[in-house]
Every structure is written in C-alpha cells, then in structure tokens.
C-alpha cells in the first residue's frame, strides 16, 4: 500500500517549501551570531571579531533597552486585555440581537478595519486625532481638550491600545460568536422555563459556554507578549513619545539598521527571539493543558 515511489513524491512535494523555509528562516538564524561579534559588514561574519557576550551585557546596561522592553510588555498586554473584553462583550450583546439582517450588517461594519493595513489606518488616525480633527471636535462638545493624542507620552500608549481595539475587536469576536452558536439551545429554553431572565441566562449559560474559548485565546496570547505591533507604532510614533511608545521592534529597527549598530540590534532582537520562543512554548503548553488545544 505505501509504496516507495509515493514517499518519493511526498519528498518532492515538500522540497520547495523546505528550501524556502531554510533559506529565509534558518539561514537568518545563522546570521544571528553577529550578536556575539563586533560585526562589520565589510568584513562579513567570518572576518568580524568575536566579542562574546559583550553586546548582550551592554544591552542590559542600556536604559533605552529596559524602557522599550517595559513599553512592549505593557502595550501588548493591555491590547490583549482590552481587545478580549471588548470582543467578548460585543459577541454576547450581538448574540442578543434577534434580527438576522441587522446582525449581519453590524458584523460587516465592525470587521472591516481588520482588513485594512496599518499604513492606511495610521493615515486616517493622524487625520482624525489631529487638533482640528474629528475626535477633538467630538470631545469639544463635552468641553474636553483639545488633546494632543500623538504627542503626549502619557496618552500615546492608550491611543495605540484603543486604536488596536478598534481594528481588531470585531474580528476577534468571530470565535466567540461561533462558540455561542455552538451552545445547545435547549439549555436556554430550560432556563427560561425556570424563569431565568436575560442576564441570568447570559451569566449562567452563555459565559460558561464560551469560557473555554476565552481561556484558549488568553493562553495563546501569552506568546505575543513581546509583539506590541510594529506596523502600527512605526506609523504613529515620533521622538516625543519614545519614552512610552518605543517598542522592541521599532528600537531594533532604528539602532540595528538605521544607525548601523548591527551587532547591538541583533543582540536585542535575539534576546526577544529567545524569550518569545519560551513564551510560545508556555502558551502552547497552557493551551493544551487548559483548553485542550493542539496546533496540529
């Protein structure tokens, strides 16, 4: 049944993907050794002098490196929490809407930002968050502001967090909506017979029904604690908000490629890679342990 020619065919099929995987994922891993060199592009990897852990140690002594690490974790964690809460709340409320067409229209509206790039959305945000933009006009009605959304270090991270909520909550709600539809309708009927009101049903049936999905999403999020969203921040930040808005990825880009501190940039990147791998390991383990999830 399992012929050798079959196996050969499988190898042939997987070969192109494998070659590209090696060429663009594992070869860069080899290049990462420049984190342990004083890398000089003209000398290449072979010619550049080795410096051991100097770059790593220097990185830990840098105020900037510590700061971007904190910023990254803060922004990423807050994003997850607020996107999750908003998405769950949205899904639960949408589940109460009985008119199918209205339901569909609402979904159509809230999914759209997910498909637009951060370049487009940042362009839009820069307009509406400007001093004479729509957001300040709106706040002005309540006598607030004008607020300098993109230029105030204490406000900037929240602009990042809530604009991410805007882009993603609808889309993340999809999984919760799916989980809600999977709940056995008879449960609700029985509860109704027992005289449960709308909120009791939500509290005792809907929420427990989607709890496993919430746990799963939360577990998988652990692996993303160091991804605060390069595309988004790169297109919205500026020097005045570096203290709270600069994240590992933007920092590595600036020092590693633009300022030419290749080895330091690689060291910071490598540090992130290693921590991220550990976190993803933990997240898969947690997802398997508490949400019965396997990636394949």
């Amino acid at each position: 049944m399992f012929r050798d020619t079959d196996r050969l065919a499988y190898y042939v099929m997987i070969l192109p993907g494998l070659v590209l995987l090696i060429a663009f994922t594992f070869v860069p891993l080899v290049y990462s050794v420049i984190a342990f060199q004083k890398f000089n592009p003209a000398l290449g990897i072979q010619g550049s002098p080795w410096v051991g852990l100097d770059n790593i140690l220097y990185m830990f002594s840098l105020r900037d490196a510590r700061q971007v690490f904190t910023n990254t974790v803060f922004i990423a964690t807050m994003k997850m929490i607020f996107v999750l809460i908003t998405a769950v709340a949205f899904a639960l409320l949408l589940n109460e809407v009985r008119f199918l067409r209205i339901r569909r229209s609402i979904q159509t509206m809230v999914y759209l930002p997910h498909f637009l790039s951060w370049v487009i959305l940042a362009g839009i945000l820069r307009t509406i968050l400007a001093r004479d933009g729509m957001m300040n006009d709106f706040l002005g009605i309540f006598g607030i502001g004008p607020v300098y959304f993109l230029g105030q270090p204490n406000i900037f991270p929240w602009v990042i967090i809530f604009s991410d909520v805007w882009k993603e909550f609808g889309f993340e709600a999809i999984v919760y909506l799916a989980a809600l539809t999977a709940i056995d309708p008879t449960l609700y009927e029985v509860a109704e017979l027992d005289g449960a009101n709308r909120f009791q049903k939500m509290r005792f049936i809907s929420i427990p029904g989607i709890a496993p999905v919430i746990v799963l999403v939360a577990c998988l999020s652990i692996g993303n604690v160091l991804n605060a969203g390069f595309d988004q921040i790169f297109n919205l930040y500026s020097p005045i908000v570096y203290s709270t808005g600069d994240i590992i990825d933007t920092y590595v880009y600036r020092i590693g490629l633009i300022q030419g501190q290749y080895s330091l940039g690689t060291a910071v990147g490598l540090f992130k890679t290693v921590v991220a791998l550990l976190l993803i390991g933990v997240s898969y383990w947690a997802a398997g342990r508490w949400a019965n999830y396997r990636i394949f």
Partner: peptide
C-alpha cells in the same frame, strides 16, 4: 511538521533577516 512549526514561531530579528 515540527520543523515547519518551529520555523513559524521562530522570528529572528530584522538585522539578520535583512543581511540574509
């Protein structure tokens, strides 16, 4: 399978990526 999954979650920094 493991190789590909490892490749998916492995995210090397931008400098080595550019050099490659």
């Amino acid at each position: 399978m493991w190789l590909f999954v490892f490749g998916m979650i492995l995210n090397v920094g931008i400098v080595p990526w550019y050099l490659t």
